[in-house]
Computed example of a mutant assay.
Amino acid sequence: MIKQFLMNLLLSFIWVALTGSMYYTNFVFGFLLGFFVLWIMNRNDIDQRYFYRVPKILSFVVYFLYLIIKANLQVAYDVMTPKYFMKPGVVRYPLNAKTEFEINLLSTMISLTPGTLILDISEDKTTMYIHVMYLEDAETFVKQTKTGLERRLLEILR
Rank of each mutant, 00 (worst) to 15 (best):
I2Y: 03
I2N: 07
K3G: 00
M7Q: 11
M7Y: 05
L10E: 06
L11S: 03
L11F: 06
S12E: 01
I14C: 13
I14N: 07
V16L: 03
V16D: 03
A17P: 08
G20I: 04
S21R: 15
S21V: 15
M22Q: 11
T25S: 15
T25Q: 09
N26Q: 10
F29S: 14
F29G: 11
F31H: 05
L32C: 15
L33K: 03
L38H: 05
N42V: 02
N44E: 14
Q48L: 06
Q48Y: 02
F51W: 04
Y52F: 00
R53V: 13
S59M: 01
F60S: 05
V61E: 00
V62N: 09
I69Q: 07
I69P: 14
L73V: 13
V75F: 10
Y77W: 14
F85H: 12
P88F: 09
G89C: 06
Y93Q: 07
A97W: 01
T99G: 09
T99I: 08
I103R: 07
L106P: 11
S111D: 08
S111E: 11
G115I: 05
T116C: 09
L117W: 02
L119F: 00
I121S: 11
S122E: 12
D124P: 13
K125I: 04
T126N: 15
T127C: 03
T127P: 00
M128I: 08
H131K: 08
V132Y: 06
L135T: 10
E139N: 11
K143D: 15
K143R: 13
G148K: 05
E150V: 02
R152S: 13
